[in-house]
């Protein structure tokens, strides 16, 4: 059953004449007021130079192109630097790996020449004391070798090079 929304006279409320006929018109007027307040001008008064929007498009695209070129050059530079850095890194890694692999095999398998090379290359900071400690056997061998030089050879050497002259 359709409900009757018409005004009941029992509650005593009254409406202005033609209220509902004018309601829509009044509502639309209020909405327009919100959208376009009566006292405010619609135009902001700003303007732009002639052909500005054509020119600005060209400027923006030129800026982007410049940026792309700059990015390319920077990339090239970084690439060059990266290659050098990579080469250095690889060399260092190989060095460390070689050094490590040798130390792993223990000191006993290292020859004096190998160790000397490693020290000369700067991979191992050692002093003569450390070397003496490690190669005590070889050092005693050296004394044996010196015994193989005959006394005659020593006298000959001393007669040629007068060691006492250096002291004067």
């Amino acid at each position: 059953m359709k409900k009757d929304f018409s005004h009941s006279k029992k509650d005593g409320f009254q409406l202005p004449d033609n209220y509902f006929e004018k309601f829509e018109e009044n509502l639309m007027h209020t909405i327009t007021q919100i959208k376009q307040p009566a006292e405010l001008p619609k135009s902001s008064g700003f303007k732009v130079p002639d052909a500005y929007f054509e020119d600005v498009e060209i400027s923006i695209l030129a800026k982007i192109e410049t940026e792309n070129k700059a990015k390319f050059f920077t990339f090239q530079r970084i690439k060059k630097f990266a290659y050098s850095a990579a080469a250095i890194a690889v060399t260092a890694l190989i060095g460390v790996w070689v050094f490590n692999s040798r130390t792993i095999t223990s000191n006993q398998t290292l020859t004096a020449t190998e160790l000397e090379t490693i020290i000369e290359e700067g991979y191992l900071p050692v002093n003569s004391y450390d070397v003496g400690e490690v190669f005590s056997d070889e050092i005693s061998d050296i004394s044996i070798t010196s015994n193989m030089v005959s006394d005659e050879d020593i006298i000959d050497y001393l007669s040629i090079y007068d060691i006492t002259q250096d002291e004067n």
């Binding site: 001008p41 135009s43 902001s44 008064g45 700003f46 130079p49």
Partner: peptide, 18 residues
């Protein structure tokens, strides 16, 4: 500065609005 701006051609009401 809008008053002296050559790219502002608003009338008094527009200036007042700004």
């Amino acid at each position: 500065n809008l008053q002296a701006d050559s790219y502002f051609e608003g009338e008094e009401i527009q200036l007042k609005l700004q």
